[in-house]
């Protein structure tokens, strides 16, 4: 057990170092959501001046911030999963697999690293959104409770996404194919998650699709914790938190169960 933890710690350190050295990945993961927040937020808020009472003071940027925190996790998990393919292509994965640890331990170490990196990047966007003037986050449980809820949500979201990525990676042999599937699957799901427009007030058919969508639950949980001044129009943490936790558990268990067989 100690040995497995030590192996996971070694893999985590390696991945953190790789991200720190791959600056373009780091910057694009954090800067793109911020750029979208600034441009889309300001553009819609000032250009369209939405008057929906759902938006409170009518600032679309505030509404968009939770979605961008979730989007950072999506970007980060996609990038982190690419390291699985890079390791497979460079032969590094083979070298890791001849260590005295099971394939599942090695995969767990890589997923752990991806979750930590994705969560740190999401938290970085949260911190920036909290301190940037012009974005007013509304902490539902006080700032400490709200921030803790957001952090728990992004960690769980990263676990779900990395479990899902691992499942896809066991089936799709090339990095290009993986990116294609991730883009084809995740971006439509993200658009339907309520990150860009409130689901409350959306047509019924759209809301039905959105509530089938797994990304809706982390996005709503983050919105509840740091955007909504009340729980009106949102599912609320009593629903979103357990659904998100169950989805994350399912994805990671399936990924770790099926992953080792795809490595030989």
């Amino acid at each position: 057990m100690t040995s497995s933890l030590s192996a996971c710690a070694a893999l985590l350190q390696r991945e953190l170092r790789a991200v720190a050295r791959s600056r373009s990945q780091l910057y694009s993961s954090i800067l793109f959501p911020l750029m979208l927040l600034a441009l889309l937020g300001a553009g819609v808020s000032d250009g369209l001046q939405p008057s929906s009472p759902i938006l409170g003071a009518g600032d679309y940027t505030d509404f968009l911030a939770p979605g961008m925190i979730a989007m950072t996790a999506i970007f980060a998990s996609t990038f982190s999963s690419a390291s699985f393919y890079r390791d497979r292509e460079t032969g590094m994965l083979q070298a890791l697999l001849v260590s005295p640890h099971s394939a599942r331990t090695i995969l767990f170490g890589k997923v752990l690293a991806a979750v930590v990196i994705g969560s740190l990047q999401s938290v970085a966007v949260l911190i920036l959104a909290a301190v940037i003037p012009g974005i007013d986050l509304a902490w539902q449980f006080g700032w400490l409770g709200g921030a803790a809820t957001v952090i728990a949500a992004v960690i769980t979201l990263n676990i779900m996404l990395n479990g899902l990525a691992l499942l896809i990676a066991t089936r799709v042999r090339t990095m290009q194919g993986f990116h294609l599937i991730m883009n084809l699957a995740l971006f439509p799901l993200f658009f339907l998650s309520g990150a860009f427009f409130p689901l409350d007030g959306a047509p019924d058919w759209l809301r039905i699709i959105s509530y089938i969508n797994p990304l809706t639950y982390p996005v709503e949980l983050i919105q509840y914790a740091c955007w909504a001044s009340s729980g009106d129009g949102l599912l609320g943490p009593a629903i979103t938190a357990p659904v998100l936790a169950a989805l994350a558990l399912l994805c990671i268990l399936l990924g770790l169960r099926r992953g080792p067989a795809a490595l030989r």
């Binding site: 070694a10 350190q13 032969g91 083979q94």
Partner: peptide, 25 residues
């Protein structure tokens, strides 16, 4: 085990590579 193709990670240094594998063992 030495594989047919090199198994190095271009983002790591020589010492980091050895240190990682030594930790795994």
């Amino acid at each position: 085990v030495v594989f047919q193709e090199p198994t190095t990670d271009d983002l790591m240094t020589v010492r980091e590579t050895l240190d990682l594998h030594a930790r795994l063992f």
